[in-house]
Amino acid sequence: MSDDPIPGHVDVVLPCLNEAAALPGVLAALPPGYRAIVVDNGSTDGSAEVAAAHGAAVVTEPRTGYGAAVHTGLEHATAAVVCFADADGSLDLGQLPTLVAAVHGGADLAVGRRVPERADVWPWHARAGNRLLAALLRRRGLAVRDIAPLRACPREALLALGVTDRAFGYPLELLIRAQRAGWRVDEFDVVYRARAAGTRSKVSGSLRGTLRAVRDVGRVALR
Rank of each mutant, 00 (worst) to 15 (best):
G106L: 09
A194P: 13
A102H: 10
P154S: 00
V144W: 12
H76E: 13
V144F: 00
H76M: 07
V10M: 00
W124H: 03
I147R: 00
P171I: 06
S204A: 15
V59L: 15
R184K: 08
R113F: 05
A80W: 01
E173V: 09
S90P: 01
V50I: 13
H71M: 13
V103Y: 06
T199Q: 02
N130E: 14
H54T: 05
G198Y: 06
V111Y: 02
P97S: 08
E187N: 02
A135T: 04
T64Q: 08
G169H: 07
V144E: 02
L27P: 03
G209A: 13
L133Y: 12
A167Y: 13
R215A: 02
H9W: 05
R180G: 09
L142A: 11
G182N: 02
E19V: 03
R184F: 00
L207A: 11
V58Q: 08
R131D: 10
R212W: 06
A197R: 11
P154Y: 00
T64K: 12
A194T: 12
F84T: 10
P62V: 12
V111L: 12
R155C: 08
P116R: 01
P15W: 12
L96C: 05
P154R: 14
R127I: 06
R219A: 13
G42H: 08
R208P: 05
W122F: 12
G55D: 06
D4H: 04
S201T: 02
A178Y: 00
D165T: 11
H9G: 07
L136I: 00
A101P: 05
D216W: 07
L136Q: 06
V13F: 07
E117S: 11
P24W: 05
C16G: 04
Y34C: 10
A22G: 02
Y170V: 10
A134D: 00
R63D: 15
D108F: 08
A53T: 05
A87C: 09
A148L: 03
Y192L: 14
R166W: 04
V190Q: 01
A152K: 04
D11E: 08
A57S: 07
R193Y: 02
V217F: 14
V59K: 03
L23D: 00
D88H: 09
A36H: 13
G169K: 13
S2A: 13
V220K: 01
V38M: 11
L150Y: 02
D189Q: 06
G55N: 13
D86Y: 08
V100H: 12
P123T: 06
S2G: 03
A22E: 10
R219Q: 15
P62T: 14
P123A: 01
P116G: 13
G33D: 14
A102I: 00
S201V: 02
G33H: 10
D189K: 07
A87F: 03
A110N: 04
V203T: 15
G141V: 07
V70Q: 04
S206W: 03
A28R: 08
R195N: 07
L96R: 06
A22Q: 01
Y170T: 09
V185A: 03
A194Q: 15
C16P: 07
G218I: 04
G205S: 07
H125C: 09
L158A: 05
G94L: 07
V217L: 12
L133N: 02
V50F: 04
L74N: 01
A143I: 00
R177T: 05
E19K: 06
P7I: 14
W122Y: 15
P5Y: 07
D216N: 12
V12P: 06
A160P: 01
D92M: 08
Y34P: 10
A51M: 09
E187I: 00
T98F: 00
D108N: 15
P97L: 03
